[in-house]
Protein backbone atom coordinates (compact mmCIF):
# COMPACT_ATOMS: atom_id res chain seq x y z
CA UNK A 1 0.00 0.00 0.00
CA UNK A 2 3.07 2.22 0.23
CA UNK A 3 2.84 3.01 -3.46
CA UNK A 4 -0.61 4.43 -3.07
CA UNK A 5 0.39 7.26 -0.75
CA UNK A 6 1.96 9.46 -3.41
CA UNK A 7 -1.14 9.37 -5.56
CA UNK A 8 -1.32 12.76 -7.13
CA UNK A 9 2.22 13.86 -7.51
CA UNK A 10 3.41 15.37 -10.81
CA UNK A 11 6.78 13.76 -10.11
CA UNK A 12 5.25 10.38 -10.75
CA UNK A 13 6.03 8.48 -13.94
CA UNK A 14 2.52 9.13 -15.20
CA UNK A 15 0.39 11.94 -13.82
CA UNK A 16 -3.02 12.53 -15.33
CA UNK A 17 -5.47 15.14 -14.07
CA UNK A 18 -8.89 15.80 -15.56
CA UNK A 19 -7.70 14.18 -18.78
CA UNK A 20 -10.08 14.53 -21.73
CA UNK A 21 -9.95 13.04 -25.19
CA UNK A 22 -12.35 13.01 -28.11
CA UNK A 23 -12.48 12.03 -31.75
CA UNK A 24 -14.54 13.04 -34.75
CA UNK A 25 -17.08 10.45 -35.87
CA UNK A 26 -18.11 9.92 -39.51
CA UNK A 27 -20.53 12.85 -39.37
CA UNK A 28 -17.81 15.18 -38.14
CA UNK A 29 -19.27 15.49 -34.66
CA UNK A 30 -16.94 15.46 -31.69
CA UNK A 31 -17.40 12.42 -29.50
CA UNK A 32 -15.74 12.64 -26.11
CA UNK A 33 -14.33 9.30 -25.01
CA UNK A 34 -12.55 10.30 -21.82
CA UNK A 35 -14.47 12.73 -19.62
CA UNK A 36 -11.88 13.93 -17.14
CA UNK A 37 -9.77 11.06 -15.87
CA UNK A 38 -7.29 11.56 -13.03
CA UNK A 39 -4.75 8.99 -11.88
CA UNK A 40 -1.07 8.54 -11.18
CA UNK A 41 1.33 5.71 -11.82
CA UNK A 42 4.56 5.58 -9.83
CA UNK A 43 7.81 4.26 -11.23
CA UNK A 44 8.02 0.47 -11.01
CA UNK A 45 4.33 0.07 -10.25
CA UNK A 46 2.10 -2.58 -11.83
CA UNK A 47 -1.29 -1.14 -12.72
CA UNK A 48 -4.14 -2.93 -14.46
CA UNK A 49 -6.70 -0.84 -16.31
CA UNK A 50 -10.02 -2.65 -16.66
CA UNK A 51 -13.04 -1.79 -18.68
CA UNK A 52 -15.48 -3.22 -21.19
CA UNK A 53 -15.32 -2.40 -24.91
CA UNK A 54 -15.71 1.30 -25.54
CA UNK A 55 -14.92 2.29 -21.96
CA UNK A 56 -11.94 4.35 -23.14
CA UNK A 57 -9.21 2.08 -21.86
CA UNK A 58 -7.42 1.74 -25.21
CA UNK A 59 -7.71 5.46 -25.79
CA UNK A 60 -5.97 5.96 -22.47
CA UNK A 61 -3.09 3.71 -23.56
CA UNK A 62 -2.75 5.55 -26.85
CA UNK A 63 -2.61 8.88 -25.01
CA UNK A 64 0.22 7.70 -22.78
CA UNK A 65 2.20 6.66 -25.85
CA UNK A 66 1.58 9.82 -27.82
CA UNK A 67 -0.48 8.12 -30.53
CA UNK A 68 -3.45 10.32 -29.62
CA UNK A 69 -3.37 13.87 -28.33
CA UNK A 70 -5.33 14.91 -25.25
CA UNK A 71 -7.99 17.60 -25.70
CA UNK A 72 -7.84 18.90 -22.18
CA UNK A 73 -6.46 18.39 -18.72
CA UNK A 74 -2.93 17.39 -17.80
CA UNK A 75 -0.97 14.34 -18.83
CA UNK A 76 2.63 14.20 -17.72
CA UNK A 77 4.55 11.11 -18.79
CA UNK A 78 8.23 10.75 -17.86
CA UNK A 79 8.42 14.45 -17.08
CA UNK A 80 6.86 15.66 -20.36
CA UNK A 81 3.48 17.38 -20.44
CA UNK A 82 1.78 15.83 -23.45
CA UNK A 83 -1.22 18.14 -23.19
CA UNK A 84 0.81 21.27 -23.74
CA UNK A 85 0.65 22.68 -27.29
CA UNK A 86 4.42 22.82 -27.77
CA UNK A 87 5.05 19.07 -27.79
CA UNK A 88 7.40 18.34 -30.69
CA UNK A 89 7.87 15.17 -32.74
CA UNK A 90 11.19 14.70 -30.99
CA UNK A 91 9.44 14.73 -27.61
CA UNK A 92 7.11 11.98 -28.81
CA UNK A 93 10.09 10.03 -30.16
CA UNK A 94 11.82 10.36 -26.79
CA UNK A 95 8.61 9.28 -25.04
CA UNK A 96 8.23 6.16 -27.16
CA UNK A 97 11.77 5.17 -26.41
CA UNK A 98 10.75 5.06 -22.74
CA UNK A 99 7.22 3.72 -23.05
CA UNK A 100 6.92 0.54 -25.09
CA UNK A 101 3.59 -0.78 -26.24
CA UNK A 102 2.49 -4.33 -27.02
CA UNK A 103 -0.67 -4.50 -29.13
CA UNK A 104 -3.50 -6.98 -29.39
CA UNK A 105 -2.80 -8.72 -32.69
CA UNK A 106 0.60 -10.40 -32.60
CA UNK A 107 0.71 -10.69 -36.41
CA UNK A 108 0.33 -6.98 -37.00
CA UNK A 109 3.26 -5.79 -34.93
CA UNK A 110 6.07 -8.03 -36.12
CA UNK A 111 7.92 -6.35 -38.96
CA UNK A 112 10.79 -8.59 -39.99
CA UNK A 113 10.98 -12.04 -41.51
CA UNK A 114 13.20 -13.44 -38.73
CA UNK A 115 12.60 -13.29 -34.98
CA UNK A 116 15.98 -11.76 -34.14
CA UNK A 117 15.68 -9.22 -36.96
CA UNK A 118 12.35 -8.14 -35.54
CA UNK A 119 13.74 -7.72 -32.04
CA UNK A 120 16.53 -5.64 -33.58
CA UNK A 121 14.03 -3.33 -35.30
CA UNK A 122 13.59 -0.97 -32.31
CA UNK A 123 17.28 -0.57 -31.45
CA UNK A 124 18.06 -0.12 -35.15
CA UNK A 125 15.57 2.73 -35.28
CA UNK A 126 17.22 4.31 -32.25
CA UNK A 127 20.60 4.23 -33.98
CA UNK A 128 22.23 1.93 -31.45
CA UNK A 129 25.75 0.81 -32.55
CA UNK A 130 25.83 -2.54 -34.37
CA UNK A 131 27.71 -4.53 -31.71
CA UNK A 132 25.39 -3.30 -28.96
CA UNK A 133 22.26 -4.22 -30.94
CA UNK A 134 23.50 -7.82 -31.07
CA UNK A 135 23.95 -7.85 -27.27
CA UNK A 136 20.58 -6.27 -26.62
CA UNK A 137 18.78 -8.68 -28.95
CA UNK A 138 20.41 -11.73 -27.39
CA UNK A 139 19.66 -10.46 -23.87
CA UNK A 140 16.04 -9.61 -24.71
CA UNK A 141 15.41 -12.98 -26.33
CA UNK A 142 16.95 -14.75 -23.33
CA UNK A 143 14.76 -12.74 -20.94
CA UNK A 144 11.54 -13.82 -22.66
CA UNK A 145 12.86 -17.36 -23.17
CA UNK A 146 12.90 -17.27 -26.97
CA UNK A 147 16.63 -17.71 -27.61
CA UNK A 148 16.07 -21.04 -29.37
CA UNK A 149 13.75 -19.37 -31.85
CA UNK A 150 16.08 -16.50 -32.83
CA UNK A 151 16.42 -17.66 -36.44
CA UNK A 152 12.79 -18.74 -36.86
CA UNK A 153 10.19 -17.05 -39.03
CA UNK A 154 7.53 -15.26 -36.93
CA UNK A 155 4.59 -16.88 -38.73
CA UNK A 156 5.68 -20.32 -37.54
CA UNK A 157 5.34 -19.37 -33.86
CA UNK A 158 2.31 -19.74 -31.60
CA UNK A 159 0.36 -16.66 -30.50
CA UNK A 160 1.98 -16.59 -27.07
CA UNK A 161 5.44 -16.95 -28.59
CA UNK A 162 4.74 -14.13 -31.05
CA UNK A 163 3.70 -11.84 -28.21
CA UNK A 164 6.84 -12.78 -26.29
CA UNK A 165 8.86 -11.79 -29.36
CA UNK A 166 6.96 -8.49 -29.45
CA UNK A 167 7.82 -8.00 -25.76
CA UNK A 168 11.48 -8.76 -26.52
CA UNK A 169 11.33 -6.18 -29.31
CA UNK A 170 10.21 -3.55 -26.79
CA UNK A 171 12.68 -4.77 -24.16
CA UNK A 172 15.61 -4.36 -26.57
CA UNK A 173 14.80 -0.63 -26.62
CA UNK A 174 15.40 -0.58 -22.84
CA UNK A 175 12.18 1.21 -21.87
CA UNK A 176 11.22 2.24 -18.36
CA UNK A 177 7.54 1.44 -18.90
CA UNK A 178 5.63 -1.19 -20.83
CA UNK A 179 1.96 -1.00 -21.82
CA UNK A 180 0.08 -4.14 -22.83
CA UNK A 181 -2.96 -3.01 -24.80
CA UNK A 182 -5.16 -6.14 -24.64
CA UNK A 183 -2.05 -8.08 -25.57
CA UNK A 184 -3.55 -11.34 -24.35
CA UNK A 185 -6.99 -10.99 -25.91
CA UNK A 186 -6.24 -13.15 -28.95
CA UNK A 187 -4.36 -15.86 -27.06
CA UNK A 188 -5.41 -19.19 -25.61
CA UNK A 189 -5.20 -19.60 -21.80
CA UNK A 190 -1.68 -21.09 -21.97
CA UNK A 191 -0.42 -18.25 -24.16
CA UNK A 192 -2.07 -15.73 -21.85
CA UNK A 193 -0.24 -17.11 -18.82
CA UNK A 194 3.02 -17.21 -20.79
CA UNK A 195 2.79 -13.53 -21.70
CA UNK A 196 1.57 -12.27 -18.32
CA UNK A 197 4.15 -14.17 -16.30
CA UNK A 198 6.87 -12.77 -18.58
CA UNK A 199 5.88 -9.14 -18.09
CA UNK A 200 5.16 -9.58 -14.39
CA UNK A 201 8.67 -10.95 -13.94
CA UNK A 202 10.11 -7.95 -15.82
CA UNK A 203 8.16 -5.67 -13.51
CA UNK A 204 9.48 -7.43 -10.40
CA UNK A 205 13.07 -8.00 -11.48
CA UNK A 206 13.89 -5.03 -13.69
CA UNK A 207 11.54 -2.52 -12.09
CA UNK A 208 9.84 -1.76 -15.41
CA UNK A 209 6.58 0.10 -14.84
CA UNK A 210 3.84 -2.15 -16.12
CA UNK A 211 0.39 -1.12 -17.32
CA UNK A 212 -1.89 -3.86 -18.57
CA UNK A 213 -5.14 -3.01 -20.28
CA UNK A 214 -7.68 -5.79 -20.33
CA UNK A 215 -11.25 -6.83 -19.82
CA UNK A 216 -10.34 -10.12 -18.16
CA UNK A 217 -10.75 -9.63 -14.42
CA UNK A 218 -8.50 -12.55 -13.59
CA UNK A 219 -5.55 -10.86 -15.27
CA UNK A 220 -5.78 -7.94 -12.89
CA UNK A 221 -5.38 -10.14 -9.81
CA UNK A 222 -1.58 -9.81 -9.61
CA UNK A 223 -1.47 -6.04 -10.15
CA UNK A 224 -0.46 -3.58 -7.42
CA UNK A 225 -3.44 -1.46 -8.30
CA UNK A 226 -6.52 -1.73 -10.46
CA UNK A 227 -8.28 1.13 -12.21
CA UNK A 228 -11.76 0.37 -13.54
CA UNK A 229 -12.96 2.59 -16.37
CA UNK A 230 -16.59 2.91 -17.33
CA UNK A 231 -17.83 5.22 -20.09
CA UNK A 232 -14.73 7.38 -19.99
CA UNK A 233 -14.66 7.83 -16.22
CA UNK A 234 -12.87 6.10 -13.40
CA UNK A 235 -15.39 3.94 -11.60
CA UNK A 236 -13.20 2.19 -9.06
CA UNK A 237 -9.59 2.36 -8.04
CA UNK A 238 -7.65 0.34 -5.50
CA UNK A 239 -5.90 -2.94 -4.83
CA UNK A 240 -7.37 -5.98 -6.59
CA UNK A 241 -8.94 -7.13 -3.29
CA UNK A 242 -10.59 -3.75 -2.76
CA UNK A 243 -11.91 -3.57 -6.31
CA UNK A 244 -13.13 -7.16 -6.45
CA UNK A 245 -15.03 -6.60 -3.21
CA UNK A 246 -17.59 -4.57 -5.13
CA UNK A 247 -19.15 -7.06 -7.53
CA UNK A 248 -22.32 -5.01 -8.01
CA UNK A 249 -20.39 -2.00 -9.31
CA UNK A 250 -18.28 -4.19 -11.56
CA UNK A 251 -21.32 -5.84 -13.03
CA UNK A 252 -22.91 -2.45 -13.61
CA UNK A 253 -19.79 -1.51 -15.60
CA UNK A 254 -20.35 -4.51 -17.85
CA UNK A 255 -17.45 -6.49 -16.39
CA UNK A 256 -17.54 -10.06 -15.26
CA UNK A 257 -16.72 -10.58 -11.64
CA UNK A 258 -13.77 -12.94 -11.21
CA UNK A 259 -14.95 -16.49 -10.53
CA UNK A 260 -13.36 -16.57 -7.06
CA UNK A 261 -15.09 -13.39 -6.02
CA UNK A 262 -18.42 -14.61 -7.37
CA UNK A 263 -18.02 -17.89 -5.52
CA UNK A 264 -17.10 -16.30 -2.19
CA UNK A 265 -19.88 -13.74 -2.44
CA UNK A 266 -22.36 -16.47 -3.33
CA UNK A 267 -21.29 -18.62 -0.39
CA UNK A 268 -21.48 -15.67 1.95
CA UNK A 269 -24.98 -14.83 0.72
CA UNK A 270 -26.05 -18.35 1.60
CA UNK A 271 -24.73 -17.99 5.12
CA UNK A 272 -21.12 -19.20 5.04
CA UNK A 273 -18.75 -17.39 7.39
CA UNK A 274 -15.97 -16.36 5.01
CA UNK A 275 -13.67 -13.51 5.84
CA UNK A 276 -11.48 -11.51 3.47
CA UNK A 277 -11.40 -11.02 -0.30
CA UNK A 278 -9.52 -13.75 -2.13
CA UNK A 279 -8.01 -12.57 -5.40
CA UNK A 280 -6.31 -15.62 -6.79
CA UNK A 281 -7.65 -19.16 -7.12
CA UNK A 282 -5.14 -20.40 -4.50
CA UNK A 283 -6.24 -17.83 -1.94
CA UNK A 284 -9.85 -18.68 -2.60
CA UNK A 285 -9.25 -22.42 -2.17
CA UNK A 286 -7.33 -21.73 1.07
CA UNK A 287 -10.11 -19.59 2.45
CA UNK A 288 -12.83 -22.11 1.73
CA UNK A 289 -10.76 -24.98 3.15
CA UNK A 290 -10.10 -23.07 6.34
CA UNK A 291 -13.76 -22.18 6.75
CA UNK A 292 -14.67 -25.82 6.08
CA UNK A 293 -12.20 -27.07 8.74
CA UNK A 294 -13.47 -24.56 11.31
CA UNK A 295 -17.05 -25.51 10.63
CA UNK A 296 -16.25 -29.22 11.05
CA UNK A 297 -14.40 -28.59 14.35
CA UNK A 298 -17.30 -26.46 15.53
CA UNK A 299 -19.83 -29.19 14.65
CA UNK A 300 -17.78 -31.84 16.46
CA UNK A 301 -17.56 -29.73 19.61
CA UNK A 302 -21.29 -29.17 19.56
Amino acid sequence: MKKMENRTNPENFIHAADLRCSYRDENGNRQEILHGVSFDVARGEYVAILGHNGSGKSTLAKLINGILEPDGGTLVVAGKDLASPDVTDDDIYELRRQVGMVFQNPDNQLVATLVEEDVAFGPENLGVPTAEIRQRVDAALATVGMTDYARHEPHRLSGGQKQRVAIAGILAMEPSCMILDEATAMLDPAGRREVLSTVERLNREKGITLITITHYMNEAAHADRVIVLNDGKILLEGTPAEVFAEPEKLMAAGLDVPQCTALVHGLRASGAALEGEPVTIEECADLICRAWEEKRHGDRRA
Binding site: Y93, Q109, N125
Partner: peptide
Protein backbone atom coordinates in the same frame (compact mmCIF):
# COMPACT_ATOMS: atom_id res chain seq x y z
CA UNK B 1 -2.01 -1.39 -37.14
CA UNK B 2 1.47 -2.26 -38.36
CA UNK B 3 2.23 1.39 -39.11
CA UNK B 4 1.17 2.31 -35.58
CA UNK B 5 3.27 -0.48 -34.06
CA UNK B 6 6.27 0.63 -36.11
CA UNK B 7 5.89 4.23 -35.02
CA UNK B 8 5.67 3.09 -31.43
CA UNK B 9 9.01 1.42 -31.90
CA UNK B 10 10.50 4.76 -32.91
CA UNK B 11 10.56 4.12 -36.65
CA UNK B 12 11.25 7.34 -38.53
Amino acid sequence: ELAMAMECRCYR
